[in-house]
């Protein structure tokens, strides 16, 4: 208590005003509060990771790493927990979503960035952004009621399966890919656009010969993040995929993904089954970490090139 007193004395003896104790404590407190926010966010990720690892690592003992990673059958009643059909399902659904969604999203971004009038842009852009805010259960419901019957008609089955899930996911990833692609196109230096037009290139030539190549890495980034979204999406997929953990048998055949299988099984799983579900969570973790690393590597490449 004697120290602050001393400071006050020193302050009065010199002409400069010293920082008051209240200011000092407020500044220090604010700094620590923000630090705490950051630490909590990181801690949440760390905690989930540690927890998932702790519960899931036993898959190496039972059912055993080879049976888990290399198994071709997922059946809780038979006690078989091979994840290959689920990986296969995830890949099929994600690939389908990208094939349908990425061109749609990139086309939308090109339209917004290069073609649309400001008025048109002010209508389309909020609409695309709104798409990102629609809850996934609504997408799933929409798919169930609107898309599934069409797919059933086309493929001759019930309509639950890869195609329906892909269509729904394609729409869901459009906002992610479109927004980021538009950013990438927007960050192409305007001089390059002008140079292309001044060389006698048409709008179309400017877009596909100059702008899309120049924004290539940003567009790949956008697509990877869209892919991450498709891999992680659960609710909408569960509602339309048919949820049969089997290998891809055609666009109309039921399928299950890593995420959908966790949801379907988690309410009743015990013992090895439960461990296997945590094992699936670890796989998901690794996939998304891999995607994030890929995006970071690409953007480093991009800054190096520029």
């Amino acid at each position: 208590m004697s120290e602050p007193l001393k400071t006050e004395k020193a302050a009065s003896s010199s002409g400069l005003k010293m920082m008051s104790r209240a200011t000092y404590f407020r500044e220090a407190a604010l700094k620590n509060i923000f630090l705490l926010c950051a630490v909590l966010a990181v801690a949440a990720v760390g905690l989930i990771f540690v927890f998932t690892m702790a519960r899931g690592w036993e898959v190496v003992k039972d059912p055993g790493l080879a049976a888990f990673l290399g198994g071709t059958e997922w059946s809780s009643s038979l006690g078989r927990f091979g994840i290959l059909p689920l990986i296969n399902g995830t890949i099929a659904v994600t690939l389908g979503a990208l094939l349908l969604g990425a061109p749609l999203a990139i086309g939308t971004a090109v339209f917004l960035s290069e073609i649309a009038s400001p008025r048109m842009r002010s209508i389309v852009r909020p609409a695309v952004e709104m798409l990102a805010g629609v809850p996934s259960v609504v997408f799933g419901f929409f798919g169930l009621v609107m898309i599934r019957p069409v797919v059933a008609e086309l493929t001759g089955g019930m309509g639950f399966g890869t195609l329906t899930a892909s269509v729904i996911l394609a729409v869901m990833i459009v906002p992610t890919i479109a927004t980021l692609t538009e950013d990438a196109l927007g960050s192409v230096p305007p001089g390059i656009r002008e140079a292309s037009y001044a060389m006698g290139a048409t709008t179309w030539q400017t877009i596909y010969k100059v702008l899309l190549p120049a924004a290539k890495i940003g567009i790949i980034d956008a697509t990877i993040l869209g892919m991450g979204r498709a891999i992680g999406e659960t609710m909408a997929v569960v509602m339309v995929a048919g949820n049969a953990p089997q290998f891809f048998k055609g666009l109309g055949a039921p399928i299950a993904t890593i995420t959908s299988q966790i949801v379907i099984d988690m309410s009743y799983a015990t013992g090895t089954h439960k461990t296997a579900l945590f094992g699936l969570a670890i796989i998901l973790f690794l996939i998304s970490m891999g995607l994030v690393a890929l995006v970071r590597a690409l953007s480093r490449l991009n800054t190096k090139k520029a």
Partner: peptide, 27 residues
């Protein structure tokens, strides 16, 4: 578009395309 092929333009900021030297000239 045809006019601009006959009347070329050089800008204040050099603005080569982000592609190889060869591809720039061959554009």
């Amino acid at each position: 578009v045809d006019l601009r092929r006959r009347v070329g333009m050089i800008f204040q900021q050099p603005n080569p395309f982000p592609m190889s030297i060869y591809d720039n000239v061959a554009f």
